[in-house]
Design a binder for these strands. Structure first.
Lengths: 203, 203
DNA sequence: GTCTATAAAGAGATAGAC
DNA sequence: GTCTATCTCTTTATAGAC
């Protein structure tokens, strides 16, 4: 993907030129390659084969573009928490479901979630995203605490630490997983659950 | 740490003004707050209570400053691999030692390792750091593979995937751990080993 | 070792034509 | 919807005085 510009003809809603989603996809990819702050608008323009000004027809500012991208990632992640599997069954079952769901979303929206996980709070948009990530984390921590109360998750590790460690593992997937490889999303989710719940050691 | 400038008097080698190490410590802290690319030299100058030009007396370029910081983190991590505990005993013992060592280094040099883990390859210095990280990962993967051959680590997960998942967990510590909290480095390392080797599930 | 001043380049964003 | 041209601001880095 170092060449410029797929034909704008193939745009999703059949209109000429790029539509907003197509621009967003490319922008997110380029942001992930160089880092959001290190990516000039001109880099997006080059990749799309457009001028900078043409891009400003599609969005108001670089920051707004980031906001739309982060919303996509956050919405998908938050969606997992309201699926039936996340609200029915034992705490451990729900925890396993949410872990699988997080891996599923992460793989399905890899570039968007990657961008989200690299946000550091440099602007209002970024701080708002961090706030929603924190809320997501808190929901999972509550689930872990419930599972500990059930007796199905070890209680000798604080729930907040256990959550952070396991989600650190999940989130790190964006650093190396590529959907083209030999391992599918389901297999990957299975590996994550195996390590998180049962560990690497044989018995 | 939002105020400016400790007294330069307290500098480590007793010379007037800041020495290179003091500048580096502050630079790494500010880089971590805003991201390396998003941090202008002027932000370092403000934090140190110096002018930009004065800073250029301490280093040749922003990139060189980054290089020195990354060397510190990489050197410390690579050091773990050559300690006696990493070369003696069963593969599982060595793996546990290296995991503990990585957590120890990560906590001891938290800002430097944090900076390292956020590097994306935007320059020659960054790409060289990524290369060394890859070599480190490969050494661990070999260790996991050995432990699998011993029969002490589960073989139903590919060694490279297991390594990435576990080190994803370890590395994610920089995102939340603060040495001021209730949990010490040893306790944290214990938690990491517990989850990585035995998992969250009770038996 | 630090300063003021400035160069040179690149950034985000807008104006107005087609 | 895209273009060229341009504005304004910020950036990295240097020159030269103290």
């Amino acid at each position: 993907m170092t060449t410029a510009a797929e034909p704008p003809v193939a745009s999703r809603r059949g209109r000429p030129g790029y539509d907003q989603d197509a621009v967003l996809d490319v922008a997110v990819a380029v942001f992930n390659e160089h880092g959001f702050d290190a990516t000039p608008i001109s880099a997006l323009a080059d990749r799309l084969g457009l001028s900078k000004s043409a891009l400003y027809h599609h969005f108001d500012s670089k920051e707004q573009l980031l906001g739309v991208a982060l919303e996509e990632a956050l919405g998908a992640l938050e969606g997992v928490l309201v699926e039936p599997g996340a609200t029915e069954g034992t705490a451990t079952e729900r925890l396993a479901f949410v872990l699988r769901g997080a891996v599923r979303v992460l793989v399905a929206r890899l570039p968007y979630v990657t961008l989200l996980l690299r946000v550091r709070g440099n602007s209002a948009v970024e701080r708002s995203a961090l706030e929603r990530r924190r809320a997501f984390d808190h929901a999972i921590t509550a689930l872990v605490r419930e599972a500990q109360a059930e007796g199905s998750v070890r209680a000798d590790i604080e729930a907040s630490v256990a959550t952070r460690l396991v989600f650190g593992m999940v989130n790190s997937i964006v650093e190396w997983y590529r959907p083209t490889g030999p391992e599918g999303a389901d297999e990957l989710a299975g590996d994550v659950l195996a390590v998180a719940l049962d560990g690497l050691r044989t018995r």
